[in-house]
């Protein structure tokens, strides 16, 4: 849960979502659903995740599926961080 709220805050910060970030649930779609999340923003989100948790994401580790939903992104972070 802790991880989930940290990922939520990263999205809030990088994408300037404000209170809209509070509504994100595990099955909330991200790519295609958040207009702020273009490819540039995806790179910024990955960078923010790397900085916060202190791991490195290789380019071939991520795909559209990673950013499909809020839950899939949290799961990805958990798998790297855990």
């Amino acid at each position: 849960m802790e991880l989930q709220s940290q990922v939520r805050d990263i999205l809030r910060d990088v994408l300037s979502l404000g209170s809209r970030a509070d509504g994100l649930k595990a099955d909330s779609p991200l790519l295609g659903a958040l207009p702020e999340l273009d490819s540039m923003a995806v790179a910024s989100v990955i960078a923010a995740i790397e900085d916060r948790f202190g791991f490195i994401v290789e380019d071939d580790e991520i795909s559209g599926a990673t950013f499909a939903t809020f839950g899939s992104l949290v799961e990805f972070v958990a798998s790297k961080y855990g």
Partner: peptide, 17 residues
């Protein structure tokens, strides 16, 4: 914290841009 992570991000951001 990590020079390697930093340049990874720099290259990734720039190439996406």
């Amino acid at each position: 914290a990590s020079g390697r992570a930093f340049f990874n991000q720099f290259l990734r951001l720039a190439t996406v841009q």
